[in-house]
Deep mutational scan, measured.
Amino acid sequence: EGLCAVCGDNAACQHYGVRTCEGCKGFFKRTVQKNAKYVCLANKNCPVDKRRRNRCQYCRFQKCLAVGMVKEVVRTD
C-alpha cells in the first residue's frame, strides 16, 4: 500500500505509469477519453491533495501529467 502521486490518498497499484488512487485514475481516464479541456480560475497552481483534489480540474490534470501519467496508454475504444 502506497500513496497517490497526484493527491496523496491511498493507492494500491500503478495506473497509466504512476501509483495513483482510484479517484485520480478515473479522473485521468475520463479526461483523456473525452479530450476534456479545463480552465483554472486562479493562478494555475491550486493545491491538489486528498481533501481538495476536486476543486480545480485544470490543476489536477496538470499534476497528473507532471507526475508522469501517460495519455497514450488510456484506451479510447
Rank of each mutant, 00 (worst) to 15 (best):
K34L: 03
R19M: 06
A36L: 12
V70S: 09
K63S: 03
C59A: 02
V32W: 01
G68V: 00
C7W: 01
K71Y: 14
N35L: 08
K44Y: 09
R52V: 11
K25S: 10
R55I: 01
L41Q: 04
G26W: 03
C13P: 14
R52T: 15
K25P: 01
V48C: 06
V74S: 08
N43I: 04
R30D: 10
R53L: 07
G68T: 02
K37H: 07
Q33L: 10
R19I: 10
C21T: 00
V70A: 13
Y16M: 15
V18L: 06
E22R: 07
Q57A: 13
A36Q: 08
K71S: 14
R55V: 12
D77V: 07
F28C: 02
V39R: 09
L65N: 14
V74K: 10
V39S: 13
E1D: 05
G68R: 03
P47V: 09
V74W: 05
F27E: 00
L65T: 01
N35F: 08
G17F: 02
F61M: 13
A36T: 14
K29S: 14
R60C: 14
E22Y: 13
K25T: 07
V67E: 11
K71V: 07
T76M: 06
H15T: 12
K44Q: 15
T31R: 07
V73K: 15
V18R: 04
K50D: 05
T76I: 11
K25A: 14
R55M: 08
A36P: 08
N43D: 03
Q57Y: 06
F28W: 08
C56F: 00
D49I: 00
V73C: 07
A66G: 11
C64F: 00
R75N: 11
R52S: 03
K71D: 04
Q57L: 10
Q14R: 09
F61A: 03
G2F: 03
F61R: 00
C64I: 02
V39T: 12
G8E: 15
P47D: 14
L65A: 06
G68H: 02
K50C: 07
D49C: 01
E22H: 11
K50A: 08
V74R: 07
Q62R: 04
R30A: 08
Q57W: 04
V70I: 14
F28E: 00
K44C: 02
D77G: 10
A36M: 08
N35Q: 08
C56G: 00
N35H: 07
C46L: 01
V32E: 14
K63Y: 05
R51V: 10
R53N: 13
G26T: 13
T76L: 04
N45D: 11
R60D: 03
A5E: 02
K29R: 07
N35R: 06
D9A: 15
R53V: 12
V18D: 08
L41D: 15
L65C: 09
P47R: 08
Q57P: 14
K37E: 05
G26Q: 06
K50G: 10
K37R: 08
V39P: 14
A42N: 02
G17C: 15
C64W: 00
K44F: 01
V74C: 08
K71R: 09
G26N: 03
V18A: 14
C64V: 00
K44S: 01
Q62L: 06
F61K: 07
R51M: 12
R51D: 01
C21Q: 12
E22I: 03
E22A: 09
A66M: 10
E22G: 06
L3S: 07
N54E: 04
C64L: 03
V67L: 09
G17D: 02
T20S: 14
T76G: 13
Y58W: 09
M69G: 02
G23V: 11
A66N: 14
F27H: 01
Y58H: 15
C64A: 06
R19W: 09
T76N: 15
R30E: 07
R53P: 12
R53K: 02
D77F: 04
R75V: 11
V39L: 06
Q57V: 07
G26K: 03
T20L: 09
D77A: 11
F61L: 13
H15W: 12
C59E: 03
A36V: 10
N54D: 14
L41T: 08
G23A: 06
Q14T: 11
K29N: 06
T20W: 05
T20P: 00
V39G: 01
Q14I: 05
K29Q: 08
Y58P: 00
V48I: 04
D77S: 07
G68K: 01
